[in-house]
């Protein structure tokens, strides 16, 4: 399931999936602009059929945060 998440981030940010890990985020991925951050959240919602709260959306600083919030919505990501 992590692969599914990394693939999605890779597609939205236009970076290789191999470069994605839980510590990556807007600080380390150059193409991760604030707008692309919104796009990512929206496409995550579509992909995993969840709806993030505004607090969750604002809390995303790295991939690990996304995993945590997805998990709160019942999405199980096995490594």
């Amino acid at each position: 399931m992590s692969k599914r998440l990394y693939d999605l981030i890779s597609r939205v940010m236009n970076v290789p999936a191999s470069s994605i890990n839980d510590d990556e985020g807007p600080e380390s991925i150059e193409s991760w602009s604030s707008f692309k951050g919104y796009v990512l959240l929206y496409e995550l919602e579509t992909e995993f059929k969840v709806k993030f709260t505004i607090d969750e959306a604002m809390d995303v600083k790295k991939v690990a945060d996304i995993k945590r919030h997805l998990s709160n919505h019942g999405v199980i990501l096995n490594d």
Partner: peptide, 12 residues
Amino acid sequence: NQFLFGDIKVSL
């Protein structure tokens, strides 16, 4: 959510 978070008035 998108409007309040990013002033997006036409959803993505």
